[in-house]
């Protein structure tokens, strides 16, 4: 018998992690952000529990500023697979009219994403939440555990994480505490795309290049996805051939110019990449350690 390939080993490891969560926790949930990593994570969950359905619901924390195509894709996939999908919106934030244009990316992300996520976790009493984060995404994530302990107030304390040995994951918690679980910890962006290609996993069409209406702001291409986007005097959206390497709130997600319309073209572009994927996220362009600060607050 030949050895396992690197994708087979990554797949097996992720499945192992998911089964541990199903066995160790009372009320787990899978955070589903609709992006390519979430697509892979969901596919792995289908494999992990086959022929059973994944024994947990999906949760999407909707900031109300996601690309319309993302929301359509989310609803379609959940229906096709017959999975339980929970959508949570921070209604307090909606009532206060919080948005990226009026309040800036920091406030918007905090209220509609970080606080909203905490609300949802508390509302449903989830004791474990899967997230699609990868260690290769950002330096502060290189030291993140697969089972990441969170206090009752959802805080992450980098100094107080449990040692993680072999594949023995310690999921014991007291009431109110929780664990964030990262089954894709050891995957890289290239692994994700190779796996999507190999397994023919559906992803949101925004990853593929198409003519889309964009404006350029501070060197970042922002797609005008709906009428809520205020345009400066003289600013007119122009159709450019663009795609997205990562997906989030449309006003905070930069597009890249590309002609990659198929998976092989995306992978080729990836192999020749000269810019890493998070470059497109406005949120990360603060000081080097900004992600670490956000994580301590409870951001994924």
């Amino acid at each position: 018998m030949s050895y396992q390939t690197h994708l087979q080993r990554l797949e097996a490891e992720s499945i192992h992690i998911m089964r541990e969560v199903a066995a160790q926790f009372r009320n787990p949930v899978m955070l589903y952000s609709i992006g390519k990593d979430s697509s892979v994570m969901l596919h792995l969950a289908l494999k992990a529990f086959y022929p059973s359905k994944p024994p947990f619901p999906l949760l999407h924390v909707d900031t109300t500023w996601k690309f319309r195509e993302m929301v359509a894709f989310r609803d379609r996939r959940a229906a096709e697979l017959g999975l339980d999908l929970l959508v949570h919106i921070n209604q307090e934030g909606v009532a206060q009219g919080i948005g990226p244009f009026t309040h800036g990316s920091a406030v918007h992300t905090d209220v509609m994403k970080t606080q909203s996520l905490k609300q949802a976790l508390d509302l449903y009493g989830f004791d474990a939440a899967f997230g699609g984060a990868r260690r290769d995404e950002e330096k502060s994530r290189a030291k993140e555990r697969v089972f990441s302990f969170r206090t009752r107030s959802h805080r992450w304390d980098p100094k107080n994480q449990r040692p993680e040995l072999w594949n023995l994951y310690n999921g014991r918690i007291n009431k109110g505490e929780s664990i964030r679980v990262f089954p894709l910890s050891n995957w890289t962006e290239l692994d994700i795309w190779q796996y999507i290609y190999q397994e023919q996993i559906p992803v949101v069409p925004l990853y593929f290049a198409a003519p889309r209406p964009v404006v350029e702001r501070d060197g970042t291409l922002i797609m005008v996805d709906d009428e809520r986007m205020p345009l400066a005097p003289g600013e007119t959206p122009e159709a450019r051939m663009v795609r997205f390497r990562t997906l989030g709130c449309y006003p905070l997600t930069g597009a890249v110019e590309s002609r990659a319309q198929t998976l092989p073209e995306i992978i080729r572009e990836m192999l020749l990449a000269r810019t890493s994927e998070r470059q497109g996220r406005v949120i990360d362009q603060d000081a080097g350690a900004s992600m670490e600060a956000k994580k301590q607050e409870g951001y994924f």
């Binding site: 030949s2 050895y3 396992q4 390939t5 690197h6 080993r9 990554l10 190779q194 290609y197 190999q198 002609r259 990659a260 319309q261 198929t262 998976l263 092989p264 073209e265 992978i267 080729r268 192999l271």
Partner: peptide, 22 residues
Amino acid sequence: PEHASATAEVEAYLRAQEDKTL
């Protein structure tokens, strides 16, 4: 033609990596 060549190129790349281990 651009698609076709990208597809062929990447498929060759992926095939070459079939035995890639970890």
